Simulated assay, not measured.
Amino acid sequence: MTRPYRSVLYIPAANARAMEKAQSLPTDAIIFDLEDAVSPSEKPAARDALGAALESGYGARARIVRINGMDSEWGADDARACAGPLAGKAEAVLIPKVNSAADLDVVAGIIPDTPLWAMMETPLAMLNAAEIAAHPRLAGMVMGTNDLAKELNSRFRADRLPMQAGLGLCVLAAKAHGKVIIDGVYNAFKDDEGLRIECEQGRDMGFDGKTLIHPAQLAVANASFAPTEAEVELARRQIAAFDEAMAQGKGVAVVDGKIVENLHIETARKTLDKARAIAEMAG
């Protein structure tokens, strides 16, 4: 059963209280951040404290560690820690500002087993999205839309038109190579309606979920990236109708006046699979 990634919450690895609170939050995954959310003076201590935190009770929530960039003074030590004292305590290591597959090779050479995720946040990353997604150690991609907007020197628009090309390239690359793809953050954490609109846009594009900066955003993201009751019911009716059509020697079925073929059944089964995975996490 596929693990859901509807909500992926950033938690500063230097904030022990936030990490403890995250154990009870309804988030599908947690990014324990050693990079942007931790001040330079706190980075070594945060790295040392992270091991104990990762051993705590996070249940079915995916645990992802975002290390500092390999071009920083902390990146190599972070990577060595993920291969040493942190090994086996997180499902993945998230690498910031990945520009090419070669950037993944550097970290893969230090961390031998843990799956790697890539932050996609530069124009060069957008242009190299296909080769990054094809890397054999890569399991997921996360959009860094704030950094991408800075690099593009684009203006903020609610429809995110300036970064649609980059978002689309990354979704295509991830889907082509079977990798998880998570949308970027929404900065106005008190604006539920704006968040909902952006989540719906991301879901329509094909993103698996959204990165979040505040627990208040969890409910909106979880609802937006979960199958609705109507979608689940339609999936069940499509499968039932198609099974009946096959039993009668027919290659297609008709549901609500629309043709249902095998490709629709694959989508329907994925919908039910995701709904079951979400129910199991909630239970």
Score class of each variant (00 low, 15 high):
95 I>Q: 04
75 G>E: 07
87 A>S: 10
78 D>P: 09
123 P>I: 05
69 G>I: 00
186 Y>T: 04
183 D>P: 02
65 V>R: 03
98 V>I: 08
191 D>N: 04
186 Y>W: 14
154 S>D: 13
192 D>P: 07
118 A>G: 07
86 L>Q: 13
80 R>F: 11
108 A>W: 12
92 A>K: 07
165 A>D: 10
185 V>D: 01
99 N>I: 08
148 L>H: 09
123 P>F: 03
115 P>M: 03
90 A>W: 08
186 Y>V: 00
77 D>E: 13
145 T>D: 01
108 A>R: 12
109 G>W: 02
70 M>A: 02
142 V>Y: 09
63 R>N: 10
195 L>Y: 05
84 G>Y: 03
177 H>F: 09
120 M>Y: 05
144 G>P: 07
146 N>A: 14
103 D>L: 08
76 A>W: 12
134 A>S: 05
191 D>Y: 00
173 A>T: 09
146 N>V: 15
99 N>M: 13
86 L>H: 13
177 H>A: 08
163 M>W: 10
143 M>G: 11
165 A>R: 12
80 R>G: 09
167 L>N: 12
73 E>W: 14
143 M>F: 15
130 A>F: 12
151 E>A: 15
177 H>V: 00
97 K>M: 05
101 A>Q: 13
83 A>P: 02
130 A>R: 14
183 D>L: 00
87 A>C: 05
117 W>C: 10
197 I>T: 13
156 F>H: 15
76 A>G: 10
129 A>M: 03
87 A>W: 05
181 I>L: 07
131 E>S: 14
181 I>C: 13
86 L>D: 06
142 V>F: 12
152 L>R: 02
142 V>D: 09
75 G>A: 03
72 S>C: 00
122 T>E: 04
122 T>W: 06
139 A>F: 09
163 M>V: 10
70 M>D: 03
144 G>F: 10
121 E>F: 02
139 A>I: 08
95 I>D: 02
85 P>D: 14
157 R>P: 06
122 T>G: 02
171 V>H: 03
153 N>R: 15
71 D>G: 04
68 N>Q: 06
164 Q>N: 11
87 A>M: 03
118 A>Y: 00
144 G>V: 09
142 V>T: 14
175 K>G: 04
169 L>V: 07
114 T>H: 11
109 G>C: 09
131 E>L: 10
81 A>C: 04
150 K>T: 15
107 V>G: 09
137 R>M: 04
161 L>N: 12
122 T>K: 01
108 A>S: 15
89 K>N: 06
180 V>F: 06
101 A>L: 06
139 A>E: 00
157 R>G: 15
147 D>Y: 06
79 A>T: 03
112 P>Y: 01
189 F>K: 13
69 G>E: 01
71 D>L: 01
75 G>S: 05
78 D>T: 08
142 V>S: 11
193 E>H: 14
190 K>D: 15
148 L>N: 09
189 F>W: 13
177 H>S: 08
178 G>A: 00
